[in-house]
Amino acid sequence: MSLFDIFRKRTTAPVARDRLQVLLAHERSVIGKSDLIALLQEEILAVIAKHVSVDRDAVQIKLDRGSSFSTLEIDVEVPLDAKVKKPTTEAGVPASA
């Protein structure tokens, strides 16, 4: 952190403006439409559950929404003895997913 940054941090209004811009850009895109990140999260988990039995509580999901991009981190522990499920029928996703 440079000396310049130390002085910059003291003013709070620019922080408020930046936080609002990020938040509202996201909220405007979500209201009325489905949220892409939430959709991805559901579908990725569904795909995993299709092949491996995974305890939903053992899945860690981290989400960070930014102004230009968001990151979605899904951390699934697959136990060694996890059995590969037989591929289900076309409809695919088991009810538990």
Binding site: T11, T12, A13, A16, R17, L24
Partner: peptide
Amino acid sequence: RAARNEMLKVDDVLEI
């Protein structure tokens, strides 16, 4: 307070 950057400026609010 806005001039001291302690409060959102009207221009910021209008832009947002």
